[in-house]
């Protein structure tokens, strides 16, 4: 760092160091907040994953029960010939922790008003309908889980960025400032010492001159 070894510069450097330490503290607090919210989102994701697993298990068990009642071939026929449901995921953004933009996913189902019933009631045991409904609910969990994962990834990226910024301040900028301050102080001390010697020499010379004239 190229600096003029002056007292003004030293003061400026010290102010910059205090500012850098302040920024590092703020970043550290942000980092802690991010870590806390990461833990919270992770817990939420674990809970969602558990619910999703439970829903899928229940749907699978209903499906098997339905298959037992309707028969394997009928179930296959029904599943292949039923009108497929069209799903879409709408993405929205909201401000989350520390004003970070978090994605919000909404699962939307395109409903055909003309055909609200997809499976022939006569051939379909309720268990198969139940399995289809539970799979739809599971899809909601999957979308919510994806949303949480996107949020977690966003937070992780931000944590890594904040950590890099803190490290840069703590291990690069502050040590550089310290070194520069030490350098400026040394130069100033040196100048002070030279000045002191120069004063003493001048004083001595003035004394000698006064003795000669006396």
């Amino acid at each position: 760092m190229e600096v003029h070894p002056t007292r003004l510069e030293l003061l400026r450097l010290k102010r910059r160091k205090v500012l850098a330490e302040g920024i590092a503290d703020i970043l550290q607090k942000d980092l802690e907040t991010l870590i806390i919210s990461l833990v919270e989102f992770r817990q939420k994701a674990t809970a969602f994953r558990g619910q999703l697993h439970e829903k899928m298990n229940h749907a699978y068990s209903s499906y098997l029960e339905g298959e037992m009642i309707a028969g394997a071939i009928t179930t296959r026929e029904l599943s292949m010939s039923a009108q497929s449901s069209d799903f879409d995921v709408e993405v929205d953004t909201t401000k989350g922790v520390l004003g970070l933009p978090f994605s919000i996913f909404h699962l939307t189902k395109q409903v055909d008003e003309g055909l609200a019933i997809r499976l022939n009631i006569l051939d379909t045991p309720f268990q198969l309908e139940e399995a289809a409904l539970e799979i739809e609910e599971a899809l909601n969990f999957i979308v919510k889980l994806a949303e949480l994962m996107a949020t977690i990834r966003e937070i992780l990226e931000m944590i890594s960025l904040k950590r890099r910024q803190i490290n840069r301040i703590r291990f690069k900028i502050i040590p550089q400032l310290d070194a520069t301050i030490r350098y400026v102080e040394l130069i100033l001390e040196e100048i002070e010492r030279q000045d002191a010697i120069r004063v003493r020499v001048l004083q001595r010379k003035r004394k000698e001159r006064s003795l000669k004239t006396a």
Binding site: I73, T74, R76, E77, L78, M80, S81
Partner: peptide, 20 residues
């Protein structure tokens, strides 16, 4: 008849559909 129509709609394997 329903089996046949469903098989035709989904292009199901003929042997598989005929089993029903």
């Amino acid at each position: 008849v329903k089996t046949l129509l469903r098989a035709a709609k989904t292009e199901m394997d003929i042997d598989e559909a005929i089993r029903h």
